[in-house]
Amino acid sequence: MLGLESITPRAFLYPLGVWAVMAVVAVINGGLRETVLIPRVGEHTGHVVSTALLVAAILLVSFAYFSWTPIDYAQAELVLIGVLWTVLTVGFEFVVGYVEGTPVSVTLGQYNVLAGEVWIAVPFALLVSPLLFGWYLST
């Protein structure tokens, strides 16, 4: 059993705020990618560097939150926080794509590792960082 019976809604309020901070960081990162990185190093390299910077920022913010929080999260809560952050982020990507008129196929293409895309590292970092840091820092 994952301990789902002990999950409390209050345990997810702060992580929602943390996700909002990470979303702002991601938007700033995107602006940096488009205005600084891509003009200097090219499209593909700019995306790779930008993705690496965003993954590092996600890990840093996640580490800081789980170092600071007084909440003793259960393992199941940490898994659900990772799922929540991932779903919110992927959903945000698709909504922004829709608003901008980007075809769904293009948005999905950003997740194609076989085509050299590295964006999948971002949702993966969001998925595993709560369990990694929440569990590691509580032991």
Rank of each mutant, 00 (worst) to 15 (best):
T86K: 07
A20E: 04
G91L: 08
L59I: 11
V48H: 05
W19T: 07
D72G: 09
I120Q: 09
I81T: 11
A56N: 02
L37I: 00
V104R: 05
I28H: 04
Y65L: 02
G116T: 01
V27C: 09
N29W: 07
L54A: 09
V25W: 12
I58H: 01
A64Q: 07
T107W: 10
I28M: 13
T107A: 14
E77M: 04
V55F: 01
P103T: 00
A52L: 11
T69E: 00
Q75V: 15
V79A: 09
T107L: 11
V25H: 11
S105R: 12
H47P: 06
A52C: 14
W119H: 08
L84M: 14
G82I: 07
H47R: 13
V113W: 12
V24D: 08
Y111E: 00
S105F: 03
V55Y: 00
E100W: 08
N112W: 13
E100D: 11
N29M: 10
W68Y: 07
A64D: 02
L60V: 10
S105Y: 06
L114F: 05
R40K: 11
W19P: 02
N112A: 15
E117V: 12
V99Y: 03
F66R: 07
A115I: 09
A26Q: 08
G30C: 13
V79M: 07
H47E: 11
N29P: 07
N112F: 15
A57N: 11
P39G: 04
W119S: 02
V87F: 03
I71A: 11
A23I: 15
R33G: 01
G116Y: 00
P39R: 12
V27R: 11
L88F: 14
V36Q: 02
L78S: 10
S50K: 12
T102V: 14
L59N: 00
A57F: 04
F92N: 06
L108S: 02
L54N: 14
S62I: 04
I58Q: 06
F92V: 05
